[in-house]
Simulated assay, not measured.
Amino acid sequence: MTRQKTLRHLVACAGLLGALGGAPAHAELPDPVAQAVGQPRLAGQGQMRFLGLRIYDARLWVGPGFDAQTFGAFPLALELTYHRAFSAQAIAERSVQEIGRQRTLDAQQAARWTAALAQWLPDVQPGDRLTGLYLPAQGMRLWRGGQLLGQLSDADLAQHFFGIWLSPQTSEPRLRSALLAAVAESAP
């Protein structure tokens, strides 16, 4: 190998190592999220597509001892970076449809949860990064970048909302597997 090729190879390797191990895995999480999860690590990441269109990229952050089978017992953070624009109402309606895959919802509860999510969620544009923090038995909080947007104190809604991605009954099992990839790898 020539000296120039060796130098290019070393620069490329250094860049790869920096990308893999440079900053702490939680460097992009808002500080309150990182503190609530406690020693967060990236469990996995994936992409939501519909009819071939990129909808959002997703990353899941979990703390020590996280168990995917009982995800509702652990604080966790889910980050979505959108590639399309959606209204809060559209996201809320779709979310409640997905929750309906996990459990039976009567029309009154579905309407109540849709209204609560529509008030809590923002409209999104391509490039928006939302981070949701799930807190067991407490509810959930939401950030756009580093700015807290709000919180919901309905613990049942919160667990089912995060179940959209993490429940075995998800409509997107491949995305669930990608989000839980590092957890599955470390399991005995």
Rank of each mutant, 00 (worst) to 15 (best):
D106K: 05
A92P: 02
T104W: 12
P122M: 02
I91D: 02
Q119Y: 03
A110W: 13
T104A: 15
I99L: 05
G100Q: 11
P122V: 01
Q102N: 03
Q119P: 00
S87W: 13
A110K: 10
L117P: 02
A90H: 15
A118K: 04
D123G: 11
A118H: 08
S95Y: 00
W120M: 06
V96Q: 06
W120A: 07
Q102E: 13
E93M: 10
R101W: 13
S87Q: 11
I91Y: 06
F86Q: 08
R112Y: 04
R112T: 11
I91W: 08
A88W: 15
A92E: 04
F86R: 10
A115G: 04
Q102M: 10
Q102D: 10
W113G: 03
R112Q: 14
L121W: 13
V96F: 14
S95W: 00
I99A: 02
T114L: 05
W120V: 00
E98W: 03
I91T: 08
Q97H: 14
W113A: 01
L105H: 08
E98N: 10
A85V: 00
T114W: 11
W113S: 02
Q102I: 09
W113D: 02
W120N: 01
V96T: 03
A85I: 00
A111N: 11
A110E: 09
A115H: 14
A88H: 10
Q97F: 12
Q119R: 15
V96R: 06
A88P: 03
D106P: 04
E98I: 00
W113R: 02
A115M: 06
R101E: 10
T114Q: 15
R101D: 07
A85F: 01
I99M: 07
A116Q: 12
V96W: 13
R94A: 13
A111L: 11
A118V: 10
A90S: 15
Q108H: 08
E98A: 12
